[in-house]
């Protein structure tokens, strides 16, 4: 896999990324236009805000996933971590009788811990990320199923629904949360040593190591972040749908990875931006919504997501090769 890609100059890479995001923006505008034309309900403030509410869980998990894929890794276990945290949140509160606030905090800790376990085995033991997170995809979901015994938890107090169902200044509460993390992630990725190190690791891990970048520590940090964000997504999700089940978040890793890849982050590592990921997340949610409004059933939309995932990689690969030929 470690084919010696001719490292593009800093300037070129920046231009290329810009191009990807501009293309994506045009696609987004075109999609909105087509969907608005096909359904009157689509382009209404109410619908758009509601769609904003629905994309928050995927959006939260897509931010650290962007970091991970930039380093050339992957995390398939995010959907399972979300399910595990959701279940534990309910179990800590209802079965163990903890205050709800403490239960939420503990669930977040478990999420971070689950991500840490991924990162630790990937860096210290050398398990490939794909395999490690495939194993924990099964393990964490299995724990969620075993702990819950397929029983759901409901009956949360009213204040708990504020995050998932409430509004702040006319905008769904959880969108503010996503916006906050979006800005933080974008700043971290673009302007901090930590963020720039991610690109270095993705472009050439050995060189990054020799440059004195603490590669293992950084990797453990981003997988832990991924787990923590999955925990946060679980909190938002439970608050939005008012109940807790062990199958929550099943298959969500597909949406998350598709959004990141569609956003221009190379699956081979080394390139990608948070802005691109945000556009990817929005585009996928709008497509889902638009298809639903034009009569495609819920499960039909995942066909489109699968096609987009494969196509976006083919197209970005094609663009990259073309750029390579120009030089």
């Amino acid at each position: 896999m470690a084919s010696a890609v001719a490292a593009p100059g800093h300037q070129d890479r920046y231009a290329g990324l810009k191009r990807h995001e501009v293309i994506l923006l045009f696609v987004l505008i075109a999609a909105v236009a087509v969907l608005a034309f096909r359904s009157e309900q689509f382009l209404t403030t109410g619908n758009l805000l509601n769609q904003g509410r629905l994309l928050v869980e995927v959006g939260l998990m897509a931010l650290p996933m962007t970091f991970i894929i930039i380093t050339g890794g992957i995390d398939l276990s995010v959907g399972s971590i979300m399910g595990l945290c959701a279940i534990l949140l309910g179990v800590f509160w209802q079965k163990l009788g903890l205050p709800l606030g403490a239960a939420i905090a503990l669930a977040l800790v478990v999420g971070a811990l689950a991500g840490f376990v991924n990162g630790w085995f990937i860096t210290r033991v050398g398990v490939p990320p794909l395999i490690m997170t495939l194993a924990t995809l099964a393990l964490y979901r299995g724990l969620a199923e075993g702990i819950s015994q397929a029983r759901s938890v409901r009956g949360y107090p009213d204040w708990f629904f504020g995050l998932g169902q409430g509004e702040l200044w006319g905008v769904p509460t959880q969108l503010w949360l996503l916006l906050f993390f979006f800005v933080i992630s974008a700043i971290v990725l673009t302007y901090t040593t930590f963020g720039r190190s991610l690109y270095a690791i993705g472009n050439n891990e050995v060189a990054a190591r020799f440059s004195g970048i603490p590669v293992d520590g950084i990797k453990i940090a981003i997988y832990t972040m991924s787990g923590l964000m999955a925990g946060l997504a679980a909190w938002v999700f439970v608050s939005r749908v008012s109940t807790t089940r062990s199958d929550m978040g099943t298959g969500l890793e597909l949406d998350v990875i598709t959004a990141v890849v569609l956003g221009g982050t190379s699956i081979f590592g080394g390139t990608g931006t948070i802005l691109g990921t945000a556009l990817g997340v929005v585009l996928i949610q709008l497509l889902k919504n638009g298809l639903a409004l034009s009569g495609v059933k819920g499960d039909g939309t995942i066909v489109v997501i699968g096609v987009i995932l494969i196509l976006s990689i083919l197209v970005s690969d094609l663009l990259r090769r073309q750029r390579g030929a120009e030089h």
Partner: peptide, 27 residues
């Protein structure tokens, strides 16, 4: 074909294929 000749990583192709087949079947 996508994996061998177009060099798309197998995890991506089959993840996409998973949702195409699953969604297609149910619809």
């Amino acid at each position: 074909w996508l994996i061998a000749y177009l060099r798309v990583p197998s995890i991506v192709v089959t993840l996409g294929m998973l949702s195409i087949l699953k969604g297609g079947l149910i619809s």
